[in-house]
Amino acid sequence: MSEAGSPVNQQKEAPLDIQGLTVAYQKKIVLSRVSFSIPEGKLIGIIGPNGAGKSTLIKAALGLIPRLDGEVRIYGRPYAEQRKLVGYVPQRESVDWDFPTSALDVVTMGRYGHLGWFRRPGARERQIALNCLDQVGMADFAHRQISQLSGGQQQRVFLARALAQDATLYFMDEPFAGVDAATEKAIITLLGQLKERGKTVLVVHHDLATVKDYFDWVLLLNERVMAIGPTEEVFTREQLQITYGGRLAVLDRDTEAFIPRSR
């Protein structure tokens, strides 16, 4: 791409730069002066306790919820100017799966950003959507109503839609939550493929035992940024204990696996 606003023209800009982001729900501060910048081509896990503001961070970055203060830049420009560069996989629980549409239609929606306001998706867009469904093992379910799919299959449909967007920066909100083994494998494969293609992916993630296997970088969040950087440097007992406020148990000292303690 060579048009204004493309990654080529802005190759020195960070895929995502957030400065001073503050968000509140009913006067309760959820995110406070969050600031960070991430490098390109990394798989980044957003890690923190329940209520830390992880999903809120993604929604605020995408303009889905209002922010009290702060600035969000995608390759140096506001998100509103860079929508074509961004893909989003929401929490499965936040989607109305009873809406009468097929898996293929859902994935084809991911092409709308490339078509503009006055063009309807045609044969080319539907073929791209089919190819994306095939990449996540869902091609045989293309014409199945989404309400008839299992939870794991529904999640893979949304992953395929993100692929169809052909984005440069991806946000995924708990894609591994409650999925079956086949879907987990599909997500891991997809993350690897996106990394190979130079994409940048931020993932809200809860399973601390798999963080080192899945992510290059980690953002530790608890209302504010506690730490951010390469996984081997940031994902440590000390940093996790600080992030979780002492509500953390070490499962296996040899593998350094962790689980949050109950409140």
Rank of each mutant, 00 (worst) to 15 (best):
A167C: 07
P49T: 03
M109D: 00
D216Y: 12
L57G: 09
L248K: 08
D69V: 00
R77D: 08
G151E: 01
G45T: 05
L130F: 12
R119W: 03
R83C: 10
Y88L: 05
L57S: 09
R224F: 01
S6K: 03
A186H: 04
Y112D: 00
R263L: 07
A4F: 12
Q10E: 07
L191W: 00
V218C: 13
L62N: 04
I228D: 02
M172L: 15
F36R: 05
Q239R: 15
D98Q: 15
S2W: 08
S35Q: 08
H206Q: 15
A60T: 03
A227N: 13
L190H: 02
K12Y: 10
V8P: 03
V234D: 00
V106H: 02
L248A: 10
K59P: 10
K185A: 15
T189D: 14
N222L: 08
R92Q: 11
R253D: 06
F141V: 02
L133V: 09
P175S: 04
G113N: 01
R73P: 03
A182L: 10
G110S: 08
G70K: 00
S37N: 05
G110T: 04
P175I: 04
D69N: 13
F118G: 07
D166W: 06
M138T: 11
T236S: 15
R33C: 09
I65F: 12
L221T: 04
S35F: 06
V203A: 06
A4Q: 09
A167M: 06
L130D: 02
L190D: 00
E174H: 12
R224G: 14
Q155L: 06
G113F: 00
M226A: 12
W97P: 10
G41C: 06
A182E: 14
P7T: 07
L219K: 13
E238W: 06
Q148E: 14
I18L: 03
M138L: 15
I128E: 04
V225Y: 06
T255H: 10
R124A: 15
R83P: 11
L115Y: 12
G45Q: 04
T200M: 03
L159I: 15
A129W: 01
V86L: 02
T255C: 03
A162T: 00
G5S: 01
V203M: 11
